[in-house]
């Protein structure tokens, strides 16, 4: 159990470091690769929570599909030649300040709740495919089917937008 605590800190450090590097990196390609690292660290967090189904779906969807889309877009847009997007120092300072204040507010807000829980997530079985599948195909069957329509609509929309002569 102590080991999982260390694992939590290591994964959190990797995720936050990669997330910061997404912002710091000048080239969009580096940002994409650091974002992939952050997604893998978050996938490790899902495994730590014993949510194995979510971990697998997260890796497949984010590292497998979304990051490939991002990388293809970066290569299609040819951004590394166009150069950087400098922003004024004032905007950077104000943006960072606003983000820091938001973090402070969120932490202060969550500190005010009493979040005592007795469940050990590494012992319960709700994150496994067997139990989640039962819930998904029992109570949430209609949203599951509707999401397929959403995907169809998204696919048609992406193809429509990708066509050349619709401006």
């Amino acid at each position: 159990m102590i080991f999982s605590k260390y694992l939590f800190f290591i994964l959190s450090f990797i995720a936050i470091y990669a997330a910061l590097k997404v912002l710091i990196s000048k080239k969009p390609m580096h940002s994409v690769l650091y974002l992939t690292l952050a997604f893998f660290a978050i996938g490790g967090h899902y495994i730590l929570l014993n949510a194995q189904f979510l971990a697998v779906v997260h890796i497949i969807v984010y590292a497998g599909a979304i990051m490939v889309l991002f990388i293809y877009t970066v290569m299609l847009l040819n951004l590394n030649i166009k150069g950087e997007f400098p922003k004024s120092r004032l905007a950077k300072i104000v943006g960072s300040l606003a983000g820091g204040l938001l973090l402070l507010t969120l932490i202060a807000l969550f500190r005010s709740f009493d979040l005592q829980v007795a469940n050990d997530p590494s012992l319960n079985q709700i994150g496994l495919v067997k139990s989640l599948g039962k819930v998904l195909f029992d109570e949430y069957y209609l949203p599951f089917e509707l999401s397929s329509i959403l995907f169809l609509a998204a696919m048609v929309g992406a193809v429509m937008l990708g066509k050349k002569d619709i401006y």
Binding site: I16, A19, L20, V22, L23, K87, A91, K92, V94, G95, S96, A98, G99, G100, L102, L103, L106
Partner: peptide
Amino acid sequence: FAIGVVGVLV
């Protein structure tokens, strides 16, 4: 989340 917000703003 705050890092994401800073990214959107900056």
